[in-house]
Design a protein around this nucleic acid. Structure first.
Ligand SMILES: [Mn+2]
Ligand SMILES: [Mn+2]
Ligand SMILES: [Mn+2]
Ligand SMILES: [Mn+2]
Lengths: 220, 220
DNA sequence: ATTTATTTTTAGCTATATCTAAAATAATTT
DNA sequence: AAATTATTTTAGATATAGCTAAAAATAAAT
């Protein structure tokens, strides 16, 4: 069975919103994520139900099927492999890759992805620190905490960002934060939850609770 | 103005069938090339006419506009650059690339193509020996030689015949040579100038100097 | 338990891109 | 010149994927 580009995009959105197929997802939330209208989502859910990639009971929400999760992970795998390609081989900045990967992820060729994976040396994480599922859909996730939840003097390494909008990524670039940076929490302001962070043992920066909430850290 | 994937594919087909926009093209021939029906072509021609990438007078044929030629060359450029990428970087065989390039050529990102071109070291020809238009649509046409003038081990693609009599064409058909065939000169006989030719990397055939003198090859 | 508000679905419309069958036009043959 | 054949276009379907507006179902508030 084959999925259309639109169906692949919906499945990917549902996969993310449902936390890997665990939770049910609201029609309105899918519409917001996809930037289209709830009526369009309802119609698509009916179609995805017919293709048995979700189990859909109208008005009562949906569950991803095993088949649906596999499809979603396959698309996510392709998206992230292309992101690695764009950054590592074509010198894209990490905030320039998303739009293009959003298109490339729909190219349909098993051989292509196999060869791309090999060419990139079987990377395990994309430029935003997100794990790349293997060809069977298995993901090696590393435990992460949100930076705003860390305590004073705790240390770790930035491994991912929740918001990968160009604006946010450019901001991080500007202040000198990046995936892989070693950080230490120097201070937390009680009043607004903002933090003072030491980056790579040399640069100090201040960030709001909001910003820190979008940064994921692997503690050490 | 933006073109859909279908429109890009039609323009590309028209460009090739019209010999670079020089000749008019028949609806039936476009349908054959695109593997769809003449009725579908008529409808698309109307749409392409409205977008002014062709000048279309119904029942009387079409002419590509300058704008149309630019669009076609842009798509051809992308197709051929991706083919080079697949062969040079991902180790695809030259006969495995077409289907994938047919998809990749529709990815829409000026930066991507710019970077890809640079990454591949600004190649001038694709793996099939076809020239890659530059970003302005300029093509460096490869000079043609008569097959009887080629040296041992040289390779190329049959692009034309000087003698287009039925007899000659029937002969070419019979021995398995055709416009577009990739050939390699395996041997040349000093005595009479006859040649041993490898066609499409599989079939060997012998031909006289006379016959070879009527075949034009684009070297690669 | 009603009423009100929110969420979700359906109905009906638009646009793209294909198809088949029929009609219109052009080209060829008699 | 008329008839026949071939080519091309139009008319009317179907499928995908979006929309708005209205209806239906569920959830929340009084
Ligand atoms: Mn996408
Ligand atoms: Mn990513
Ligand atoms: Mn194509
Ligand atoms: Mn080619």
């Amino acid at each position: 069975m084959d999925l259309t580009t639109a169906e692949e995009n919906y499945l990917k959105a549902i996969y993310h919103l449902s936390d890997g197929g665990k939770k049910s997802v609201a029609t309105n939330d899918i519409a917001a994520e996809m930037k289209n209208k709830p009526a369009s989502v309802s119609d698509m859910l009916r179609k995805l139900g017919e293709k048995e990639v979700i189990e859909y009971r109208k008005y009562y929400g949906l569950q991803m099927t095993e088949s649906g999760k596999r499809f979603a992970l396959q698309t996510i795998r392709k998206h992230r492999l292309w992101e690695v390609f764009l950054v590592e081989k074509l010198n894209f900045a990490w905030d320039e890759v998303h739009e293009v990967a959003e298109q490339l992820e729909h190219i349909n060729s098993a051989l292509l992805i196999q060869r791309l994976d090999s060419y990139l040396n079987y990377p395990k994480f994309d430029p935003h620190g997100d794990p790349i599922p293997d060809e069977f859909g298995d993901v090696r996730a590393r435990p992460r905490v949100h930076l705003n939840e860390m305590e004073i003097n705790q240390t770790g390494q930035i491994v991912a960002v929740k918001d990968s909008s160009a604006a946010f990524l450019r901001y991080l670039d500007k202040v000198g934060a990046y995936i892989g940076a070693r950080i230490k929490v120097l201070d937390k302001v009680e009043f607004d939850g903002s933090l003072e962070i030491l980056v790579d043992q040399k640069k100090t920066l201040f960030m709001s609770k909001d910003v820190a909430g979008n940064i994921l850290v692997q503690q050490s």
